[in-house]
Design a protein around this nucleic acid. Sequence first.
DNA 1: CGCCTGACCACGT
DNA 2: CACGTGGCCAGGC
Length: 115
Amino acid sequence: MDASGSTDAAQRIFAAIRAIPVGEVAGYGEVARRAGLPGRARLVARLLSTSLEPGLPWHRVCRSDGRIAFPQGSHGFDEQCARLRREGATVVGGRVVGRRARAATLDEALWGPPA
DNA sequence: CGCCTGACCACGT
DNA sequence: CACGTGGCCAGGC
């Protein structure tokens, strides 16, 4: 690792997460892809679980289907849910519902929808 | 050095 | 929509 204490991959992932617009959510895989690390979704998850950075909008990161990664009722779930709502998003049944989180399955529907 | 686990993802049934 | 399977990478034991 470098002198900053984190690997380049980690830095890119953090940058990708910070790049998520307020009120929107991105899947782990999508974040990894944007960070230039396709297929490293698990790396993103592990990063958030171990080396969370202060000021990082981790609450904007959820599963590919728009669901919060934590089990309903957990502290993490509650925290993420509250933060998302504060940003204007809506959470129902552990699912993030913005104007469109109705993605059938793919992240494409979540990030690249035709107006 | 090998095995198990994990804030995951996609596909097929 | 639920379940099972394979793949991916990194860390802990």
